[in-house]
Design a protein around this nucleic acid. Structure first.
Lengths: 134, 134
DNA sequence: ATATATAGGTACCTTATGTATAGCAATGAT
DNA sequence: ATCATTGCTATACATAAGGTACCTATATAT
């Protein structure tokens, strides 16, 4: 239906532009998603706790990321009607399922820093215009 | 050194802003990285072959993505000095190692489309300003 | 002569991300 | 009584990333 790949004759295929799985992959393609899901995989947390754990995230990006995760059913948001406000976030079953994979990627990133830093050093002398950015 | 997390007293920690693993995670946070690495995990490919496999990617983004992957030691680029030009790309050992994890995420995206689409439908009526974007 | 294929490059515009600031509503300090 | 503080979010604005469209060079095919 979506796929013409013989390996998945009727399934979803992220390589196809119009496939819904493409939008899921797009949603996951954010360092903040990695880190916020990672932080939530330790357990239920408040907005401020997450902001402290995920260094460098601004309140705006944190709220925005949490809204997207909530919208896609990965995070549950619970509001306590008190002053000052108290809001707690928690991974859903689906979110915990995903967190396992995302944490593996995060761990991979940490494990392979030396090799990648080395590769970057080799590459930088000529600086072949890899857009200078990260 | 980088970490004050008791679980990794002297290692890298992507939650820390200044940690190099943070930049690695940032590099991986791109749907095009997922898809290009995924396409290369089938074997050595040319620019045009990749462009056909990864639907919707523009030549510019494909080249840019490949340059970043090459810079970080995940992809090898081989140029054949012929006319018309012939350039082939191939995953390195490190790249193949990563591809396993990225392909799992891609497979997860495909597997959980129905639940996520359902969650989005539930969320959309009130459209709580999850930035309207994906 | 015109068209096609290959691997890109460049100019431009739009969208996303980041920075900084302001808001609410009650509580505690001055 | 006034003012700052708190936790979470909203808004305005600046910047950087992503996307669109068009261009190059050469060889082969039509």
């Amino acid at each position: 239906m979506y796929s013409n790949d013989p390996d998945k004759p009727f399934g979803y295929d992220a390589f196809r532009r119009e496939c819904m799985s493409h939008t899921v992959l797009e949603m996951l393609s954010s360092k903040w998603v990695y880190l916020v899901v990672g932080a939530l995989s330790f357990g239920r947390r408040r907005h401020g706790e997450l902001a402290r754990k995920v260094e460098g995230i601004t309140p705006k990006m944190l709220t925005q990321t949490l809204r997207v995760l909530e919208r896609d059913g990965l995070v549950l948001r619970e509001v306590f009607p008190v002053i000052p406000p108290r809001v707690e976030y928690e991974l859903t079953e689906l979110g915990r399922n995903l967190a396992g994979l995302l944490n593996e990627i995060r761990a991979w990133s940490e494990r392979h820093v030396p090799e990648i830093v080395e590769a970057r050093k080799q590459a930088s002398p000529d600086s072949e215009g890899a857009s200078a950015a990260l």
